[in-house]
Amino acid sequence: MNQLLFRFAVGGIMVTLFALLADLLKPKSFAGLLGAAPAVALSTLGLTIFTDGKSYVALEARSMIAGALAFFLYACGCSYLMMKFSLPAIVATTSMLFVWLIFAVGAWLLVLR
């Protein structure tokens, strides 16, 4: 339980720090880079190395490549929906989460499992 709370706190702090930096940066296209910063990965991998070892983390990182490529499709889709169809950000970004999930889990089923 303590470890979960620690993970929660470290992950929350890392993500908030990257979000704070993104708020301050201009132009917005550059600030957007931080939307895909390795905030969760840095906090999780740093902790997992101590508990489960380097080989375990290397396997997580291999899957993370597929997750990041799914993120690329997701972000391109969000940008297209908001620019082309003028969808509200909340509608575009939450509906496209299914695309991320389908691509990421598909890659896991076909390649990574």
């Binding site: 917005k28 296209s29 600030a31 957007g32 931080l34 390795p38 990041a68 490529l69 940008s79």
Partner: peptide
């Protein structure tokens, strides 16, 4: 928000390299 998402798309390719 669309421009922010386009930035995140580029950041995600960097994230793949991180992995």
């Amino acid at each position: 928000a669309a421009v922010d998402a386009a930035g995140a798309a580029m950041g995600s390719l960097g994230l793949a390299l991180f992995g």
